[in-house]
């Protein structure tokens, strides 16, 4: 453990530095930043004030220092559309997005792991192969198409569920289902593979031979070992999950961070977009590190390698 954690943290720091620098270069050094960081129809005086605020008239190195300073102080200026501090705009929407992600993650694990185990145990049965087939469909159908199909069925044909917004518990069902479909499918597959590897091990036969009940053998000796690789894969999927959430939030008018960023792109609202990319990317990187550390804590082979 002695070198694993410092090394991992150093890599995280480098990654974050690369991201901040890339965002800085993308927004400042390509073309004339004054034109696209400014709202349209700004008079000369306001323009000069904005230039002074962002330090856009200074040389690139000073701008870079300023950029870091504003980052550390949490000062990101005003959104061009809403004319409010971007930190406030994000603060209002962050909760809804995190709730969607957390719910999706929970549903994915609660459904994906048991199904993965079942398809491994039932590999000779028809039902197991139907579950796999359903997982294949969930994997191959793009999430926004699935969302549209569900809206057609449950909102317009049956009138059971609302098609937009995030106010009641009912609103969470379809976004979570569409977002989770892909990840459940992936998790079923990973869990199944890991279980199949474990089921053939000698210690499983030993556990059976000493008279443990099949359920105990399967869960305590099988699943616990099979889950180790599954945890890593789950960690790797966080970035994909966030990407998917951007699309799904747009479909269901979620009013979260994802559709905010899409809107900011369409309206060229750079302060919002720049802040959003930094915050979301930073969060994903940190989560990845946490997963790695958790993984190393579970499995001694990793930190010794």
């Amino acid at each position: 453990m002695s070198t694993f954690l410092p090394r991992r943290l150093l890599r995280m720091a480098v990654t974050l530095w690369v991201i901040v620098t890339c965002v800085f270069m993308a927004t400042r050094l390509t073309g004339n930043p004054i034109d696209y960081l400014m709202p349209e129809g700004l008079d000369a005086e306001g323009r000069a004030a904005m230039i002074a605020y962002w330090g856009l008239d200074r040389d690139p190195f000073d701008q870079y220092i300023l950029f870091w300073r504003s980052l550390v102080q949490g000062e990101f200026g005003l959104g061009l559309m809403e004319r409010r501090p971007v930190t406030v705009i994000f603060g209002e929407r962050m909760g809804r997005s995190l709730a969607l992600l957390a719910l999706t993650m929970t549903a994915t694990i609660a459904i994906g792991v048991p199904l993965g185990v079942l398809t491994a145990v039932w590999r000779e049965r028809r039902l197991g192969s139907w579950v796999l087939f359903a997982a294949f469909l969930g994997y191959a159908i793009p999430n926004f198409v699935l969302a549209i199909l569900l809206i057609l069925l449950f909102s317009f044909a049956l009138h059971w569920l609302p098609s937009a917004g995030a106010t009641t518990a009912w609103h969470y069902i379809m976004p979570t289902a569409t977002l989770a479909a892909y990840f459940v499918a992936a998790l079923v597959r990973y869990t199944r593979n890991a279980m199949l590897d474990v089921l053939g091990q000698d210690y499983m036969r030993t556990a059976h031979a000493k008279g443990l009940s099949p359920m105990v053998v399967l869960v305590r000796h099988g699943l616990r070992n099979a889950l180790i690789p599954v945890v890593t894969v789950l960690g790797l999927q966080v970035a994909t999950l966030v990407s998917g959430a951007v699309v799904i939030e747009t479909v269901f008018a979620w009013n979260g961070v994802g559709d905010l960023l899409v809107g900011a792109t369409l309206r060229r609202d750079y302060p919002v977009l720049q802040f959003g990319v930094l915050v979301v990317a930073g969060a994903v990187i940190v989560v990845n590190v946490l997963v790695d550390v958790a993984y190393a804590a579970i499995d001694p082979r990793v930190r010794l390698a």
């Binding site: 990654t15 991201i19 970035a239 994909t240 966030v242 990407s243 951007v246 699309v247 960023l261 959003g276 990319v277 979301v280 990317a281 994903v284 990187i285 990845n288």
Partner: peptide, 8 residues
């Protein structure tokens, strides 16, 4: 690149 959500 691999750690970032590509949509961003």
């Amino acid at each position: 690149k691999l750690a970032l959500p590509f949509t961003l």
